[in-house]
Computed example of a mutant assay.
Amino acid sequence: MDAEELVEVVLPGKVEPDGLELRLGAVPTPGPGQLVIRMEATGVSFAEQQMRRGRYYDQPPFPFVPGYDLVGTVHTVGPAVAPTLLGTRVAALVKVGGWASHVLVDAADVVPVPDGISASQAETMVVNGITAWQMLHRKARIRAGQTILVHGANGGVGSILVQLAQAAGVTVLGTAAARHHDALRQAGVTPIDYRTEDITVRVRELAPGGVDAVFDHVGGPGVVDSWRLLAPGGTLVSYGSAATRDDTGSKQLPVLKLLGRVWLWNALPNRRHAYFYNLWAGRATGKDRFRARLRADLTDVFTAARHGDLTATIAAELPLARIADALRLAESGTVAGKVVLLP
């Protein structure tokens, strides 16, 4: 591939994975305060899976280039950007646009990737790592000696949640399909089969007084059970709606229902807390503060990786041109970790 030719994946509408299109073009030119990243790794997250179905809460109108995050080297810089950034490896959270060979971003939005972490490893830790870190430390405020329940403990976010929690001295119970249980046990997690076991009964056996936090990416009616599993003073953090992935109704309704429940639960005098985690909360009203928090948290995630507290879980690495295969694999529910896309 010509390094100076832009290659990007376009989502033209609500299509099956084979319906995504490759488009060629000119590499963008950065303006003041901007830079262009030559992508070395991007990935497939639940957000893009929902965008393909037209069900992500605030996705842009079709057609657009998906890609929530990326890692790469700085290719060109615009005016008022330090030229010393050229050639350095950085990570960026972009929400859309990452599935491309070259990505234009604001220089203030990039975070340096430390030496010793490959592009693919770092990619698994950008959106998933920030999400896990903020839910654990900014929302649930976990402490050593506590016990938590992680739904989807084998997934992209779940696997990082598990490792960061254990590094903080927390006991982890994790739901997953039976085929992932041996790996979870080796990681120090007590696994629960969400398909064959009654999760509520099993958690009550393991933690009779309830758990100190539940991290729920499933949503739907099951989020009520997650709330009921909390110990006094416990925290529920909901961060997804996998249960409604294939619904054909309003994409806003599941989120609005959940927000209503969160408001009601927090009004109850039982010392428990509930949050609907939104990675982008606060950006519209305080961009500088949002950027500073993101940079600090992702730096902490990378530091944990360098110290050996966090290991990247890469399900597969596929070239950008095989986006259909990558999406099908990510959506199959058969893999552990993140599907990474390479140039």
Results as ranks from 00 to 15, higher is better:
residue 54 G to D: 06
residue 264 L to H: 15
residue 225 D to L: 05
residue 221 P to L: 13
residue 302 F to P: 00
residue 333 G to M: 08
residue 221 P to E: 15
residue 270 N to E: 13
residue 192 I to D: 01
residue 121 Q to Y: 03
residue 69 D to R: 04
residue 2 D to E: 10
residue 276 F to H: 07
residue 137 H to M: 14
residue 277 Y to I: 04
residue 69 D to P: 01
residue 192 I to G: 00
residue 94 V to W: 02
residue 158 G to C: 03
residue 19 G to M: 10
residue 3 A to G: 03
residue 243 A to D: 12
residue 250 S to A: 08
residue 227 W to S: 03
residue 157 V to I: 14
residue 149 L to A: 01
residue 91 A to V: 03
residue 253 L to A: 15
residue 54 G to C: 06
residue 129 G to E: 05
residue 160 I to Y: 02
residue 84 T to F: 09
residue 101 S to G: 02
residue 9 V to K: 06
residue 59 Q to G: 08
residue 201 V to T: 15
residue 313 T to H: 13
residue 93 L to E: 00
residue 271 R to E: 13
residue 83 P to N: 12
residue 177 A to N: 12
residue 10 V to H: 06
residue 268 L to G: 07
residue 194 Y to V: 06
residue 40 E to L: 12
residue 213 A to E: 07
residue 277 Y to E: 00
residue 285 T to R: 14
residue 328 R to M: 10
residue 86 L to C: 07
residue 264 L to T: 14
residue 16 E to P: 02
residue 263 W to C: 04
residue 257 K to F: 13
residue 236 L to M: 09
residue 283 R to L: 05
residue 342 L to N: 03
residue 120 S to A: 15
residue 343 P to W: 08
residue 85 L to E: 05
residue 196 T to S: 15
residue 291 R to F: 06
residue 224 V to Y: 13
residue 325 D to F: 08
residue 45 S to C: 11
residue 216 D to A: 08
residue 186 Q to H: 15
residue 32 P to F: 07
residue 24 L to Q: 12
residue 166 Q to V: 10
residue 117 I to C: 05
residue 166 Q to L: 10
residue 321 A to Q: 13
residue 57 Y to A: 10
residue 23 R to H: 15
residue 126 V to C: 06
residue 108 A to K: 13
residue 329 L to T: 02
residue 151 H to C: 02
residue 27 V to W: 01
residue 195 R to G: 07
residue 160 I to R: 01
residue 270 N to R: 14
residue 136 L to T: 02
residue 160 I to K: 01
residue 110 V to N: 07
residue 250 S to D: 13
residue 28 P to I: 07
residue 24 L to A: 12
residue 202 R to S: 08
residue 127 V to S: 03
residue 168 A to V: 09
residue 248 T to P: 02
residue 337 G to T: 07
residue 193 D to P: 02
residue 196 T to C: 08
residue 120 S to Y: 09
residue 196 T to F: 12
residue 129 G to C: 04
residue 142 I to E: 03
residue 30 P to W: 06
residue 193 D to N: 14
residue 286 G to M: 09
residue 317 E to L: 03
residue 187 A to K: 08
residue 28 P to M: 10
residue 198 D to C: 11
residue 77 V to G: 03
residue 17 P to W: 11
residue 264 L to C: 08
residue 138 R to M: 04
residue 212 D to F: 09
residue 322 R to Q: 15
residue 49 Q to T: 10
residue 71 V to G: 01
residue 266 N to D: 10
residue 32 P to Y: 11
residue 341 L to N: 01
residue 212 D to V: 02
residue 14 K to T: 14
residue 167 A to K: 04
residue 32 P to D: 11
residue 41 A to W: 01
residue 248 T to H: 14
residue 321 A to F: 06
residue 107 A to Q: 05
residue 244 T to G: 05
residue 194 Y to W: 09
residue 248 T to S: 12
residue 313 T to V: 14
residue 316 A to M: 11
residue 37 I to G: 00
residue 182 D to L: 11
residue 181 H to K: 04
residue 244 T to P: 01
residue 135 M to A: 04
residue 225 D to S: 14
residue 271 R to P: 02
residue 279 L to E: 01
residue 67 G to V: 07
residue 285 T to L: 13
residue 282 G to I: 03
residue 338 K to C: 04
residue 263 W to A: 15
residue 38 R to H: 11
residue 106 D to R: 12
residue 313 T to P: 03
residue 9 V to C: 05
residue 163 Q to G: 05
residue 316 A to R: 09
residue 10 V to A: 02
residue 64 F to G: 02
residue 136 L to P: 00
residue 272 R to Q: 14
residue 63 P to T: 04
residue 98 G to M: 02
residue 244 T to V: 08
residue 221 P to F: 09
